[in-house]
Simulated scan of single mutants.
Amino acid sequence: MRHFTKVLLGLMLVLAVACARTPSGGRYGAPGPGANPQLGDSAPHDWGWGHPYKHQVHGIDISRWQGDIDWRRVRGAGISFAFIKSTEGGDHIDPNFHRYWREAAGARIPRGAYHYYYFCRSGAEQARWFIRNVPRERGSLPPVLDIEWTHSKTCPRRPPASEVKREASIFLDIVGRHYGQRPIVYTTVDFYRDNRLGDLRAEFWLRSVADHPSKVYPGQRWGFWQYTGTGTVPGIRGNVDLNAFAGSAADWSRWLQTRLTR
């Protein structure tokens, strides 16, 4: 009997270790409340108390590098929204943008477009380029301004914080007037700190892949959290960025009622 007990305990330990490495739950096994078990991570992080899978509403952000996407499988996996790269600077458009835009709508996934900001163009010029290429379509998510330090050889500028916020505000004002919704601002930890973005008038989408946003961006309210760049979703080959909405499923429904383009 004692030998049987030891064997049983050994089997339980093996199963516990195996479960702790399942991609959907990271190193802590099964996802927390509200998570969809079909979502995973090819390089899971040890989140501790601030596990993103405790959030009920999850989405993706994508660009040309995701290739062909089976949007119906993506929706079936529990993805509730998609932010699609549209434009960069004042002269580049993602070659897959319009196709993704149509396909996501066909799968009935709420989607919005994001613009990657370059510091060698004015905020007004980039706003005009975004408006030229992104439809003002009823039911789409608010536009997004992705503003972070770039590693472009053609635009290595790092302007002072005052210029960054002035030009970003111009972009937000112009684009917000056109689409009837003030854009969301996506940013990274270093850029947020370097430019003291907390006083920028916007709803924030924050990148934080090593800790909860409340620790990385103390005191900053946020609507969306990009928690990994190595996520896995049925219908998408390879890694994809995964994001969580700040509130519950009921909060998400209310957010959509007020923030969709009319």
Rank of each mutant, 00 (worst) to 15 (best):
255 W>T: 13
10 G>V: 12
250 A>G: 05
45 H>E: 05
37 P>N: 09
51 H>S: 14
30 A>N: 07
123 G>F: 06
211 D>Y: 03
145 L>Y: 02
69 I>P: 09
62 I>S: 01
45 H>M: 01
115 H>L: 10
88 E>D: 13
103 E>I: 02
25 G>A: 03
117 Y>L: 11
77 A>L: 07
80 S>C: 06
211 D>R: 15
178 H>S: 10
140 S>I: 04
57 V>Q: 10
200 L>F: 15
42 S>V: 04
205 W>R: 04
23 P>N: 03
112 G>Y: 11
157 R>P: 06
109 I>M: 03
107 A>W: 08
137 E>V: 00
108 R>I: 00
34 G>N: 06
245 F>P: 06
152 S>L: 09
183 P>N: 05
256 L>N: 12
205 W>E: 05
180 G>F: 11
240 V>A: 10
194 D>V: 08
113 A>N: 09
68 D>F: 07
19 C>D: 12
29 G>Y: 03
123 G>Q: 10
209 V>M: 15
98 H>L: 11
226 Q>C: 06
160 P>W: 08
79 I>Q: 11
119 F>W: 14
150 T>V: 14
73 R>I: 01
164 V>A: 02
107 A>V: 11
9 L>P: 06
16 A>T: 13
109 I>F: 10
37 P>I: 13
29 G>K: 00
86 S>Q: 03
57 V>I: 15
95 P>G: 05
233 V>M: 13
53 Y>S: 15
138 R>N: 13
107 A>G: 12
28 Y>S: 12
177 R>D: 14
28 Y>V: 00
13 L>D: 08
90 G>E: 05
181 Q>G: 00
11 L>F: 15
58 H>C: 08
89 G>H: 08
195 N>T: 09
92 H>F: 15
63 S>M: 10
171 F>P: 13
217 Y>H: 11
242 L>I: 10
160 P>L: 08
203 E>K: 15
60 I>K: 08
217 Y>T: 08
244 A>R: 12
156 P>E: 00
133 N>C: 00
105 A>E: 15
90 G>N: 12
